[in-house]
Amino acid sequence: MDPVLAALPFPNIDPVLFSIGPLAVHWYGLAYVVGILLGWRYARILAGTNRLWFDGRPAMRVSDIDDFLIWGAVGIVLGGRLGYIFFYDFAAFMHNPLRMFEIWKGGMSFHGGLLGTIIAMIFFARKRGISVWSLFDVIAASAPIGLFLGRIANFVNGELWGRVSDVPWAVIFPTGGPEPRHPSQLYEALLEGPLLFFALYLLIFRFGKLQRPRYIGGAFLLGYGACRILVEFFREPDAHIGYLLGGWLTMGMVLSIPMLLIGLVAMAYAKPPTQPAPVGDSGSSH
């Protein structure tokens, strides 16, 4: 059978959820908002569950998570956009600097968003006098929720599609030419979302790894890096970058390899704190 005939048609979902006059609400933007809010709710649960922490004393208050919400959102959006520009789209940005503000068209880098969030966490933790590593752990455990929704939004936008393929579930994307392609956005959604989330969930609730600062953060870096490198074998690299070093290495792999190494080191050196952290509250905010 002709692989083109066997391919799945693209669902052709309108990237715009609804419009009110000149204001258009995109699925992509909604994914970021919902992902951040759900991640915040889960982080509150982790911070407020005493039994998960060393000596039953949380490293932060639930109110700290509430107050970090805006810091984290700014770090994700600003870091993600700047990361995309500098890692993937710098030449086009120099030609038209206003591209930086066209977030509704996509163009966000996870690695840039990660760096932006890390910077936000460092400043916030120092300001509040809480453990930077423990804040890393809580936010890292919550991150797969947003990653899942973001990758689904990539699929809805018909962007970041995969390489040409004849698998039965290959999809013909409107902007990907006539050939059927791997729906690599959905591969990433499943690997970086539910799979990574539940792996971290088990480490926290079954094996008590939140009691060892930097372990969960390291596991997240290791897990994401491995999932991203795997998916890069099915994902079409950006046309203006292409393949690196002999035609198999991609920019996504280059940016993910350090995550593997850092994650392994963080997990290897994770150990219980030398003294109990301050007792957290159960849900107040200020």
Rank of each mutant, 00 (worst) to 15 (best):
R57L: 02
L98Q: 06
P213Y: 01
H182F: 07
F87E: 15
N96Y: 08
L195A: 15
N12Y: 04
I103Q: 00
V33I: 15
L46M: 10
W161Q: 11
K127R: 13
G150P: 08
W27C: 07
A199S: 13
L222Y: 04
A92M: 13
W104L: 12
G223S: 12
A268W: 01
A270W: 02
S256F: 03
Y187A: 12
E232R: 03
M60C: 09
A226M: 11
I130V: 12
Y32N: 10
A125L: 00
I257T: 12
R212S: 14
P168S: 00
K271R: 13
S282Y: 07
F220M: 08
F148S: 04
D67V: 14
D14F: 05
D66E: 13
L8E: 15
L46D: 07
L190C: 14
L186W: 04
G246L: 12
D166I: 08
G146T: 07
G39H: 05
E192T: 13
E179W: 03
L245F: 13
N157T: 10
Q185L: 08
L261C: 09
P174G: 10
S109H: 01
A219V: 11
W169M: 04
I118Y: 04
L261D: 08
P276N: 03
P237K: 03
G162N: 12
P194K: 03
I152D: 04
I65K: 02
L221A: 01
F54K: 12
G217E: 03
S142L: 08
D238V: 11
V171H: 03
I119D: 10
I45L: 15
I45F: 10
L230A: 12
S184I: 11
D137R: 01
L264T: 00
Y201R: 13
G162R: 02
F205S: 06
L245E: 08
A73I: 13
L249V: 14
F123W: 10
V25I: 15
I216N: 00
P183F: 02
V77A: 07
P237R: 00
R51E: 10
E179L: 10
L255N: 06
L52T: 08
L17Y: 00
P15V: 01
A143H: 00
Y201S: 10
D89S: 11
L222I: 07
V16Q: 13
V171M: 01
F198H: 02
L200I: 12
S165H: 08
H95N: 15
V254F: 07
A125C: 10
I20T: 13
V279N: 15
F233D: 11
L8H: 11
T49E: 11
G223P: 14
S282I: 12
E179F: 04
D89A: 13
V138F: 05
Y215I: 12
I204T: 06
R228Y: 02
R235A: 05
V138C: 07
E236V: 05
L255V: 11
F124L: 09
V156R: 00
F86P: 14
I257G: 04
D281K: 00
A219D: 11
P183N: 09
Y224A: 00
R44P: 14
G283N: 09
L230Y: 09
K105C: 08
G223F: 05
G177F: 04
L149T: 07
L38G: 05
Y187Q: 11
G225N: 00
D137E: 07
L114H: 01
G21R: 09
Y88T: 15
L221F: 01
G116A: 02
G106A: 01
L200K: 03
V62D: 06
L190R: 02
M108H: 01
I257E: 04
A266K: 02
